[in-house]
Amino acid sequence: MITTHPIVQEFPEYLDKIKDLYHHNEEFQVLLGSYHSLDKEIFEIEKGEIPATDDELTHKRRDRVFLKDEIYNYLTSS
């Protein structure tokens, strides 16, 4: 099944912290926005709405994992 991967579903235990960081940390806002945009793009590629090669899709998925790791680091660092 093709689905999106929202951060709040990936890290539901950090929902309050995600909201707080989003409203008070500009760098986190950018990071979360980048993750959301990339996740949406991957979803559209997987649904066939946007053309992409397998290599491009693989690269985008790796970038999404990197962003997810960065977000997790924010959530666990303070």
Rank of each mutant, 00 (worst) to 15 (best):
E46A: 09
Y72A: 07
T4K: 14
D16T: 07
R64A: 11
L57H: 05
Q29S: 00
N25L: 02
Y22R: 06
D63K: 11
F43G: 08
D69N: 13
R62E: 10
H59V: 13
L15P: 03
G48E: 03
D39W: 02
R61G: 08
T53W: 07
H24C: 03
L75R: 00
D54I: 10
I18S: 00
I42V: 02
S77D: 15
S77W: 15
D54W: 11
I2Q: 06
A52P: 05
T53G: 11
K19R: 07
N25M: 03
T3G: 06
I18C: 00
G33R: 01
L75P: 01
N73Y: 10
E13T: 09
E44W: 14
D55Y: 09
K17S: 06
V8P: 07
I7Q: 01
E10A: 12
Y74M: 02
T58Y: 14
Y72V: 08
L21C: 02
L21P: 01
L31W: 02
E10K: 14
D63R: 11
Y74K: 01
D20E: 08
H36Y: 13
L67G: 00
D20Q: 08
D69I: 09
I71K: 08
P12F: 03
L57C: 06
T3N: 10
I7Y: 00
I71Q: 05
R64D: 05
E70F: 03
E46S: 09
L38I: 05
L32N: 07
R62N: 08
V65E: 15
L15N: 06
Y14H: 08
E27V: 07
G48H: 03
R64F: 05
K19Y: 02
E49Y: 15
L67C: 02
T76K: 12
E46V: 09
M1E: 12
K17D: 08
N25F: 01
N25R: 05
V8K: 11
V8N: 07
I42C: 03
K60L: 12
G33F: 00
T4C: 11
P12Y: 03
T3E: 11
D20P: 04
I50E: 14
L67F: 05
E70H: 02
F43M: 09
E13M: 11
F66T: 11
V65M: 14
I50Y: 12
K47S: 12
E27M: 10
E10I: 13
Y74L: 02
H5N: 14
T4V: 12
I2H: 05
E44M: 14
E49W: 15
D54H: 11
N25A: 03
K60G: 03
S34Y: 10
T53A: 08
E41L: 15
E56K: 15
K17M: 06
S37A: 14
E44S: 14
E27K: 10
N25V: 04
A52Q: 02
F11A: 02
D16S: 11
V8Q: 06
N73A: 09
N73G: 08
S78T: 14
H23D: 12
Y14V: 04
L21G: 02
E10G: 11
E41T: 15
I2R: 04
N73K: 12
F11V: 00
D39H: 03
D39L: 02
I71R: 06
L32V: 06
R62T: 07
